[in-house]
């Protein structure tokens, strides 16, 4: 019969329409904003039939660990015992070299006494109007010092003053990195051999070795 195909199609739409209500019934009295309900609504399972909408400012989808937005720089926790707030970056420049759109600018620090380069950036800028969120800087940083942030709520009214991030704006505590990427930061720490910065661990190991030698000799 002519028109049957259209009716069949409308049946599909009707089913979708009704499904949203049937699903609502399941959450009756419990509220659909609970974590359980949210998981069910957003899951890839066949159980999910109804409303798919994430009502953004009232509920947001938490982004996964590997999510990448604008990069940030890791610093020591501000309440750390040793070197609170010390930046992890050694200004080796690999991130600036590997950056595809070349949006990273680093001024290497110099020791005021000797005039020789020291492993710390004097200035560090990222132009977020150029950054393509590709994550290569974080991938190739040998010191785990630059990481991709998860905070995407960055809309602003003015870009001339807001969109070149400087060192102060980029720096975030190590605690923050651990909180947004528990698994990855743990893997990295395991590879480094501890939760501290690679160089600190090296120093410590060296100190331990000399201490060992000293005790062994005496």
């Amino acid at each position: 019969m002519y028109g049957l195909g259209i009716l069949k199609g409308m049946g599909v739409t009707l089913k979708h329409f009704l499904d949203t209500y049937i699903e609502d019934l399941r959450f009756l009295g419990k509220g659909k904003r609970t974590d359980v309900a949210f998981n069910l609504r957003q899951s890839g399972s066949n159980q999910r039939l109804g409303l798919f909408t994430v009502e953004y400012p009232e509920e947001k989808i938490a982004v996964p660990e590997r999510f990448r937005f604008i990069p940030f720089l890791v610093i020591n926790n501000l309440d750390a015992e040793e070197d609170p707030g010390k930046i992890w970056c050694t200004s080796c420049g690999i991130c600036a070299k590997v950056c595809p759109p070349q949006c990273i600018w680093i001024v290497r620090g110099t020791d005021p006494e000797t005039g020789r380069p020291k492993p710390e950036p004097e200035e560090f800028y990222i132009d977020i109007d150029i950054c393509m969120n590709c994550g290569l800087c974080a991938e190739f940083c040998p010191f785990d010092a630059i990481k991709m942030d998860h905070d995407y709520e960055l809309a602003s009214y003015d870009r001339t003053t807001h969109h070149i991030f400087d060192k102060a704006r980029l720096s975030k505590e190590f605690r923050y990195w651990r909180s947004i990427a528990p698994t990855i930061s743990a893997e990295e720490a395991e590879a480094r051999g501890g939760w501290e910065h690679k160089d600190v661990l090296k120093e410590k190991a060296k100190a331990a070795r000399t201490a060992d030698k000293a005790t062994g000799a005496s």
């Binding site: 994430v54 953004y56 400012p57 947001k60 989808i61 982004v63 937005f69 604008i70 977020i128 109007d129 950054c131 393509m132 969120n133 995407y152 709520e153 960055l154 809309a155 602003s156 009214y157 003015d158 870009r159 807001h162 969109h163």
Partner: peptide
């Protein structure tokens, strides 16, 4: 009037 950074901004960032 408003700039939304990101490459690309996620839908949530756009709604923000």
């Amino acid at each position: 009037d408003v700039y939304v950074p990101g490459c690309p901004p996620t839908p949530q960032a756009l709604i923000h």
